[in-house]
Structures are given as C-alpha cells and as structure tokens.
Nucleic acid binder design. Sequence first.
DNA 1: GTGATTGCAAACTTTTTGCATCCGA
DNA 2: TCGGATGCAAAAAGTTTGCAATCAC
Lengths: 156, 156
Amino acid sequence: MEADKTQKLLKERLKEKGGLKVTHQRLLVLSVLEENSGSHMTAEDIYDLVSEDYPEIGLATVYRTLQLLWDMQLVDRINFGGDGCVRYEIGHLLNGGETKHNHHHLICKRCNKVMPFDDDLLESLEDHIEKATGFHVLDHELKFYGLCKDCMKKQR
Amino acid sequence: MEADKTQKLLKERLKEKGGLKVTHQRLLVLSVLEENSGSHMTAEDIYDLVSEDYPEIGLATVYRTLQLLWDMQLVDRINFGGDGCVRYEIGHLLNGGETKHNHHHLICKRCNKVMPFDDDLLESLEDHIEKATGFHVLDHELKFYGLCKDCMKKQR
DNA sequence: GTGATTGCAAACTTTTTGCATCCGA
DNA sequence: TCGGATGCAAAAAGTTTGCAATCAC
C-alpha cells in the first residue's frame, strides 16, 4: 500500500473523530511505521527513526500518537517474548491483504535459538474457526518449542 | 499433577544447578502458580497471593524466583495483547503429561479478550518438521489474532 | 482566534539491582 | 560455618500526565 493512501486514511479517520488535526508529527509516525512494515518496533525505536527527519519531536508525542493510531485501528500492538515492552506495527487492515505474515518459529528450549519455518497449512483452520466461533481471524502466530539439531546431539 | 511431584522436580533442578537452595519462598511461589494453573498471572498477582500466607516476602524475591523458575523451565512466560505486562503460568512440562497443554488461543486485537481453542491438528505437522529439519518438537503454542464476535459487531 | 497538539519535565508503573542481614545445607 | 537467598530501598526502564507555548483549521 502506498504512503499516499495510508495518509488519506489517517486524514479521514481524524475528521471522523471530529476536531482532530493532521499534524506533521502524526504523519511522520505513520510513515515510519509504514516504511518498516513487518518489523515490531517499540515506541523508542519509532521515536529514533522519526527524530532523524524531525529532531524536535518528543517521546511523549510518539506515545500519544501511537495510542491515537491504535484507537483508530491503524496500528497493531504486539508483545514478543517476555521482554516487557510493547511493540507496534502498521495495522493488518492497512498492511495489504496479500502480504499477511505468518509467524512460524521453531524455538529451542536449551539454546534459545529461533528458526523461522514457513507453512500455510493453517489457512483452512482459520475458516473453520470463523464458522464455529464467529471470531474473525486476521493473522496467526505458531511457535514450536523443543530441541534443535545441535542441542539434541549434545544431549546424548 | 500433585504439588508433591512439582516440589520434587523443583528440588531436583535446584540440585542440578549446584549450590542452589530450596527456600520457603520458592516453594510458595511455585505452589501459588500450581494452584492457579491455567490463569495468566503478573508478578504482582503472585506476590499478593503468596503474601496471604507469608506477608514478609518481598516483591523483588517474587521477580527473582520467577526468573529462576523460567531459567529452569518450570514456568512459562506469556504476553497477551498489548497490555504491557509480563504474565506467568506453570510450565507446560509440569502441567500434566496426558493433558498436554496446547496453548491455542484466539486473541482479540481490539478488546484483548483471550478465548481458548482446542485442536490437536498439529501433531502430524510436528512429525513433518522433525523429519525435515531435525528439530525435536516438545510442545507448541498457536495464537490466532483477529476480532472477536462482539468487536466485529461494534465495528460496523 | 480558538481549541487541539506539542515539547518538556515531572510523575507513575513495572522490573532490576546493591547491600547488609539471614538462613539452608 | 559459608555462600546463596532475602528484604528493603534505591535505581532503571517504560509509559503517562500536567502545563505553558505553539500550530492547524
């Protein structure tokens, strides 16, 4: 999705909410999120990136903007592992229906190595869930915990 | 799994690590986690529960104990939704051999509601992974992100 | 012009760390 | 006894809030 289209959507939603303004800062935060679609960024990551173009921005503004974008459903919040900080990425609704990311990981319980693993096997299960529960699935995340090849060897 | 067995496992692992001690506090934290198997508790939740029986415990001890239990793979860390705090539950290895805890969850991106969802569909995929990559799978965790029935309604 | 928004700093919340004391092995 | 563990308080790290100045409409 092109930046123009995302910006247009932001402007629409701000108008819908009534009285809210399209500011330079809001556009910049959104554009950084869009340029890094797929990565999971903390507020500080976003602050650092926006600062490159606009050093006078404040961290508090980034937090306030992320809260606003979340309220308007333009960004998603995610929580990876137990690192205790909230991460953001551009919303699924904006992220193009096609390029949905399938978070499949093999995680070794011994050495904590994380290996990616691709498989689209779950698509049909999503349909089943939606029919059975009314829950509309947007994305999934599948983690397998176990022992990697190397740690299996070491174990014996 | 009975508390006795869990305690025994804790003692074993502490001995394995060498020099680590079985303290009243560690036993209490583990027993609270076991009594509340299935719920996802913050460190403070656990602190409050342990405090009922043992008011002199410090919050820092709870954090240190949870870190230790996690290192020894006796508890799991989970991070649902974007509520910005880490939660703990008794580890899946301990949570009953038969009823292997398959963490299947439907997580609403809007209201952060978490609904359980059971399915054993992934067993065959585990075999496939092991043959293809040499990774020995012990457990899996599957999360579907989307919009629950209620939030779907509200959206229109 | 007017009210929403911003930057800054201070407050808050959650988690970690330093240290003197205590306790399990 | 002795080194690991604890409780407390102080420090970090992450996030929110109050307020005067500023900017979008």
